[in-house]
Design a protein around this nucleic acid. Structure first.
Lengths: 215, 215
DNA sequence: CGGGTATGAATTGTATACAATAGAGGTTGC
DNA sequence: GCAACCTCTATTGTATACAATTCATACCCG
């Protein structure tokens, strides 16, 4: 995407994700154009993208606000994401080549290094994790799946989750990734699918137990 | 969506779906604005939507063209759609109420009437079918799922499929719908999910055998 | 008081002009 | 002849002005 429209997207996105915005807060196009430093035209483009990712919501009367997800919606998001990422893993297992396999190994090594630090480098972990999953998606060679996924990897949740990960949980992610790599190497689609499903669903439960205190 | 932007969306969409456009053909924003009778600004909004539905493709250099799906991509689209619609059916089974159930029955009655005509009224069939599936999606009560589905129900394929349906196949659709309604009435999520999966996958195969002549 | 309604302000939608960028085709130098 | 480059044109990107909606508030009438 071109310069202004892309920077608008980035800035608004980080405005929302970095917690400067409260869920439900109204966002006028003009405010957003001040935040991002470009005119309303590219802002509208950016908003359209964010709307698809459901980071911003458009009310019945076209007014914009910061999305506010119920617990049920977060649950549903993880369920859908597990379905689609598992499907992606299965496809990737059938299509992956040696180069991509090695690239996955390299990325997971970086991820492990990020964990080993004390304290663990959560930002580097998230970055490596994102690239790992992105590469799998690319190997799945499904344009349509690639189009669908962004709407399911909203990072306010992912980030909150990872920050609350224990070192053990972070380590388990790396182990999952290793097993995924093994499944890919064996070209075993069912295996890859199962591992990916567990991987995502575990992340969800780590999130839900830490995020919703027992009453 | 507002008037101009919405009409642009409709016109461009039907321009593509009604076969006036050839796959791969270039679409300039200016041409599209002539077609739809509005200026480029709302056209760009409309194009964004169509891009998400993957009816139009944006090349590396931002140029637009009519999407051209490979056989593999159509296959993948049906697979994803089967997954998500089955999931929607399962959710709907747990949440549906009497009113919605009756509404589904009413819609399926219309669908049956469309089939009984000779020749069958394919347009009315498609319309009723669409409303049937839309209502299920609504009953699933998942905003995220609702956002995802439009990218999977592209109608060039659906329409081609239905036009090639035999009367027997059209009838089978109505039977599937009846069974779905039964599953909903019993609030049996697994049953609903299975029926929906078969329903979509059968449609896919009716499509693929009639669309790709044996070599 | 209460409810509906008019009025003004805030917000989104649209058109148009202009800027930036990518493509095509020709030209020049080797 | 061919390849690199340059220029001109087609196309997309951005800004801004203005139109159309929608919201909130105050007012009027009952």
């Amino acid at each position: 995407m071109s310069r202004a429209s892309e920077t608008a997207y980035q800035k608004i996105r980080s405005f929302i994700l970095q917690g400067e915005a409260v869920p439900g807060m109204q966002l006028t196009e003009e405010k957003l154009s001040e935040i991002s430093g470009v005119s309303r035209t590219p802002v509208r483009d950016a908003v359209r993208r964010l709307e698809n990712e459901m980071l911003v919501i458009r009310s019945a009367s076209k007014r914009l606000s910061v999305a506010d997800w119920s617990e049920g919606e977060v649950d549903e998001m993880f369920t859908l994401r597990a379905m689609l990422e598992a499907h992606a893993a299965a496809r990737a297992a059938r299509r992956i080549d040696g180069d991509a396999l090695n690239a996955l190994r390299g990325i997971n090594d970086e991820l492990k290094r990020a964990i080993k630090k004390s304290p663990p480098d959560v930002t580097a972990f998230l970055e490596a994790n994102r690239r790992f999953h992105d590469l799998i998606l690319e190997c799945a060679q499904s344009p349509r799946l690639s189009k669908l996924m962004p709407a399911l990897v909203e990072q306010p949740v992912v980030r909150r989750t990872a920050q609350q990960y224990s070192k053990t949980q972070l380590h388990q992610s790396a182990v999952d990734h290793d097993e995924l790599i093994a499944a890919f190497a064996a070209k075993d689609a069912d295996w890859a699918k199962s591992v990916m499903t567990s991987h995502i669903r575990r992340a969800f439960h780590s999130f839900s137990v830490t995020a919703t205190p027992k009453s």
